[in-house]
Design a binder for these strands. Structure first.
Length: 509
DNA sequence: TTTTGAGTTGTTCGA
DNA sequence: GTCGAACAACTCAAA
């Protein structure tokens, strides 16, 4: 018996210790670090945490310094406020909540690990250069301290480090990039957790969302509320509506800024309220009834726009300097025009250039935090070619005013416009604001909406008020130079000057 | 290895 | 009024 007892006793002790350890470990929570993946569905980090079977602590950390040179601008902060609020509400429906912290990300994660007794942190990857550096450092520090730190892909169909051409280099032209991507498999999205999330025994303290002061103190966001519904529910509703109402006609209607022909998913995508896998699946499910994939030419064109989003991430990942420097280094010494006192830049920003389509776009941007893509090309071309101001001024303004401001997309868009980036617009492509207006806003409805002082002009004059006969202007209540500015530059002269400058610089050497 | 054709979004000019 | 050509240089990928 003694021998047996001696034999049994240590086993008992061991199993008690094991039980104790197992109990502690099985209740050690998992932190889910939310970033630009503010959704419950198709969220691999959240799913992995739930599948781990431990309490889940959803966390958001506000860390401006961790964003490198690109802390969220004014409009995206507005969005972020409402999106976080929405995520918290959605989590509460599952018996959980969003813990908000503010400070340096690594420090805050460590503090929350200790406060909750968690032993793991899961998150979904971001691809901006400064974020990659930061997250790598955080991951290795956590792992060195014995924590589990895992990252996942929620944001892209094809992560940049997985895509290369046959020479093993990054793609620099869209069409071969996208052709290549279309041969690769796309993962199915996963559904949101159905059951309550296992909660920790004690919730750590959370910062109040309002205390982050993401909302403006002066009410420039008045019109934002009618235009947008931030959050996962709003994103999914938008996707559903687009797939049903507009996608089939997307190829043509997307170019008409007065019509709801675009998806308007860009801000939702930026914050990860919906992901590209879900978009892919939504297009596919339309295709299931159509019997083909993609189900229409509109759907094919729409997916290629999703492809441009992927391409933008690809380029930013492989060419990390491009947010501030031209990809093509012949542009380093481009002869940008002088702008004494910043008067021309200010006229552009405020929608006071005297070119109606340009001004309508800039005012739509200011009022709603968004601008139609066709018009973005026009205002971009105008800034860079007509005014010959550095594209980085445009990028900075967009960064602050767009609700969908995204480093990858913004960088690609502006470098493309300026002709200094990948697959760029040729130097001789100078958008003519009058022609573009006539072509894509033929009735002038878009201009009427955003430049109300021209609203009474007939369609034939609304894109070119300075050419309208005096009596037409008078009847419409327009006094050029008073109620609406005269053009700040002459189109033909500005075009010539741009062609001369861009022709010289575009050339090698 | 070298060559070749093609490449998101346009405008103007001259036949 | 319509239509095609011209407007660089460079990258990619197929041949």
């Amino acid at each position: 018996m003694v021998a047996r007892g001696n034999f049994r006793a240590p086993r008992l002790q061991i199993s008690r210790a094991l039980l104790c350890w197992a109990h502690r470990m099985s209740s050690a929570p998992t932190l889910v670090w939310f970033r630009q993946d503010l959704r419950l569905a198709d969220n691999p980090a959240l799913k992995a945490a739930v599948d781990r079977g431990r309490p889940v602590v959803p966390v958001y950390i506000h860390d401006d310094d961790g964003e490198g040179d690109w802390p969220a601008g004014g409009a995206t902060r507005w969005w972020l406020h409402h999106s976080l609020k929405s995520l918290d509400a959605d989590l509460r429906k599952l018996g959980s909540r969003l813990v908000i912290a503010t400070g340096e990300s690594g420090t805050e994660l460590t503090r929350l690990l200790s406060a909750t007794g968690a032993d793991a942190v899961y998150w979904n990857r971001r691809y901006e250069p400064a974020i990659i550096t930061r997250d790598k450092a955080i991951k290795s520090a956590l792992q060195a301290d014995g924590f589990e730190a895992k990252s996942f892909n929620s944001a892209l169909l094809f992560e940049p480090h997985t895509v290369q051409n046959k020479q093993g280099n990054p793609f620099q032209v869209f069409t071969p990039f996208w052709k290549h991507c279309l041969t690769l498999p796309v993962a199915e999205p996963t559904p949101a957790p159905k059951n309550a999330l296992p909660a920790p025994s004690d919730w750590p303290a959370s910062v109040e969302l309002d205390s982050l002061k993401f909302l403006p103190t002066i009410p420039w966001d008045r019109d934002f509320y009618d235009a947008w519904q931030p959050g996962e529910a709003g994103a999914l509703a938008r996707l559903k509506e687009f797939a049903r109402e507009a996608m089939a006609d997307y190829a043509d209607e997307r170019n008409l800024p007065a019509k709801p022909g675009t998806s308007r998913l860009s801000p939702h995508l930026h914050f990860g309220e919906v992901g590209p896998r879900q978009i892919w699946a939504a297009v596919k499910s339309v295709g299931a009834s159509a019997g083909t994939f993609p189900p229409s030419n509109g759907a094919r064109v729409f997916l290629s726009e999703v492809g441009w989003r992927e391409f933008a991430h690809h380029l930013l990942f492989h060419f990390p300097k491009t947010p501030t420097e031209p990809l093509r280094d012949t542009f380093a010494d481009f002869p940008w025009a002088d702008d004494p006192g910043g008067a021309r830049l200010r006229a552009w920003q405020r929608g006071q250039t005297g070119y109606p389509i340009v001004d309508a776009g800039m005012r739509e941007l200011w009022a709603t935090g968004w601008m139609h893509n066709r018009v973005r090309m026009n205002v971009g071309s105008f800034l860079v070619k007509h005014l010959r101001l550095n594209w980085t001024h445009g990028a900075a303004w967009f960064w602050d005013t767009l609700v969908d401001a995204d480093l990858a997309q913004n960088t690609l868009g502006w470098q493309w416009t300026a002709g200094c980036g990948a697959d760029a617009a040729p130097y001789f492509r100078v958008f003519n604001p009058m022609l573009q207006g006539a072509k894509f806003d033929p009735d002038g409805d878009y201009v009427r909406r955003w430049v109300p002082e021209l609203a009474k002009l007939p369609a034939e004059h609304i894109q070119v008020p300075w050419e309208a006969p005096a009596e037409v202007l008078e009847r419409a209540g327009v006094k050029l130079g008073e109620t609406y500015p005269k053009p700040i530059v002459d189109h033909a002269k500005a075009r010539e000057a741009a062609l001369a400058a861009f022709k010289q610089v575009g050339k090698d050497g």
